[in-house]
Design a protein around this nucleic acid. Structure first.
Lengths: 217, 217
DNA sequence: TAGATTGTTAATCGATTAACAATC
DNA sequence: TAGATTGTTAATCGATTAACAATC
């Protein structure tokens, strides 16, 4: 399924709805949820919830709301999370290792978390050939082969800023489709490759703005 | 300085501009930069750059542009980054340790990175009393005292989801002003406390939407 | 049937872009 | 002076909210 040009603002709320539905499916007995309630739990207005969902189909029933299990399955399909998606990670430093652990834990605990971390990459010869939590570490020269063999679609980049563009290029050339970038640089990529940036320092600096400056010891 | 109600969309671009100016101050000889060039480097339109900056004052010169060193200093002041800001972190797991290392490295390398990580917190008795890269680990019962003594203004939360709201409450009670939350939950906090969320799984799931599903082995 | 809640259209709100006089 | 670029106002674009007929 592919819909033409749905706004990124909409897409970034879908995983939020999905999380609420996942929680709900466990904790509660209820079969259906209203846009009102779903909105409250996701931190979004009820009209916006309905509008977001309506882009993809008619999932609700008037007077009743949305059937939780059904809507969850539909959202999974929309987000391409209904089947396994192979993910790689490059930069096996402490952040890379932390994300690997986090990711595997999530994958083990949540049966429907279909993003599977299958290969790690690093340029450090002492790391190549080792494995982290059971995931093998390859050298950068193995990127084309591994991307192809394992069918990697997404790569998480946790290398230093000065190397980020270079390794990104290697993965783009190898045919990767999505990049989750933790390096503090604006990556250049063709339109066919989707880049999402996560920059901790930027977020912290933003937060600093909101901290009233009352000088103290 | 305090300006009334400037949009968050504006604030989140300021650290981006600041980073461009920091890079520029090092690499280049040029004294001034136009909104055009600054925009290209930050990935923002030139008119928007001018409008964003104009909220805070008149920093440019017609026909010339913005003096790099001057604008950088002004942005630092606006973002409260011109003086030391004490930061804490709770949840000394692998992500917490990784962020600690990352943070300290940044602090050591960049003289103007004034966000100083001063205290770690955890509930694990085997971790309390230890230190990570020279930063001491305290128990949760020490939160009020340490927040006060060290003047902690911001806390980074890297605890499991089910504990996040509880530890957040402890810090809010102790008088923290900002929270950078890595736990996958929507934290409830009073309006006086600013919360920024960073959720890796959410970002990955969002990325999955953009990955065309061509099933392969 | 009466009450509730959807999907959707129209109204509002806010953010970005275009345009240009002022001026370095 | 001539050329470039700012700060700002007006125009446009896009996203959210309000309202309500349709209907479960």
């Amino acid at each position: 399924m592919r819909w033409n040009k749905i706004s990124d603002a909409v897409i970034r709320r879908l995983p939020l709805y999905l999380r609420v539905l996942d929680d709900l499916a466990q904790e509660s007995e209820t079969e259906a949820i209203s846009s009102q309630e779903l909105g409250i739990r996701a931190g979004v207005g009820p009209a916006l919830v309905r509008k977001d969902l309506a882009w993809f189909g008619e999932f609700g029933k008037q007077g009743v709301g949305y059937e939780i299990g059904f809507l969850r399955d539909e959202l999974r399909k929309i987000l391409n999370l209904d089947s396994r998606l192979a993910v790689g990670l490059v930069g096996v430093g402490s952040l890379g290792v932390a994300l690997t652990r986090y990711h595997l834990k999530r994958f083990a605990e949540d049966a429907s978390f279909n993003l599977q971390l299958e290969a790690l990459f690093d340029s450090d010869l002492t790391k190549i050939g080792q494995s982290v939590e059971g995931v093998p570490v390859y050298g950068l020269e193995d990127i084309p082969r591994q991307v192809k063999e394992k069918g990697l679609k997404i790569v998480i980049i946790t290398v230093p800023a000065q190397n980020a563009q270079d390794v990104a290029n290697l993965f783009i050339k190898a045919g990767i489709q999505g990049i989750l970038n933790f390096a503090p640089v604006k990556l250049k990529a063709p339109d066919t490759v989707h880049v999402v940036d996560t920059d901790v320092s930027l977020e912290l600096q933003r937060l600093a703005y909101y901290v009233p400056k009352t000088t103290n010891g």
